[in-house]
């Protein structure tokens, strides 16, 4: 997991997360360890009968965390420390909200991307951006 931080006040310090293929970045903070066994996600809407079909799993964002879609993937902001996390997730993850206080992440797991998606989710959980189930 790579990070850039946007400090609380004038300019943010940033945390830059990248999924399965960590690479050199000017602001790597916590490189995501690829050898960590994937976090067991709790599927709430998975279709066990059709493993090749795209599955959608929902993960609530941690309290105080907001996220928005960007061209590269998702940009997270944690109001508890005012830090940003850039996640190059492409279209693997999406964010939706019922209300300001009830945001959730959607993992769109094509079978081929499942491992990468799980690693991203684990990295996000390690950073406290989504609730560990």
């Amino acid at each position: 997991m790579e990070c850039t931080n946007t400090g609380a006040n004038v300019a943010p310090s940033t945390s830059y997360a990248r999924g399965a293929t960590p690479s050199r970045s000017p602001c790597e903070l916590n490189r995501f360890a690829t050898d960590v066994s994937p976090w067991e996600s709790t599927k709430r809407n998975a279709d066990e009968q059709q493993p090749d079909a795209a599955e959608k799993d929902y993960y609530p964002l941690s309290p105080g965390v907001r996220a928005r879609r960007e061209g590269f993937g998702l940009l997270f902001y944690n109001s508890r420390d005012a830090k940003l996390t850039f996640v190059k997730s492409g279209t693997l993850l999406d964010v939706s909200a019922d209300s300001k206080k009830n945001c959730r992440l959607t993992a769109i797991c094509e079978a081929t991307d499942k491992e990468r998606t799980l690693r991203l989710l684990k990295a996000l959980a390690n950073k406290g951006l989504i609730d560990e189930p």
């Binding site: 790579e2 004038v10 940033t14 690479s23 970045s25 928005r68 960007e70 996640v87």
Partner: peptide
């Protein structure tokens, strides 16, 4: 490798504003 970190990409909106 030509690495282009995400924070260098054009963002659709500011992260914060100074008012």
């Amino acid at each position: 490798m030509n690495h282009n970190p995400a924070y260098k990409e054009f963002l659709k909106a500011p992260v914060n504003v100074t008012w």
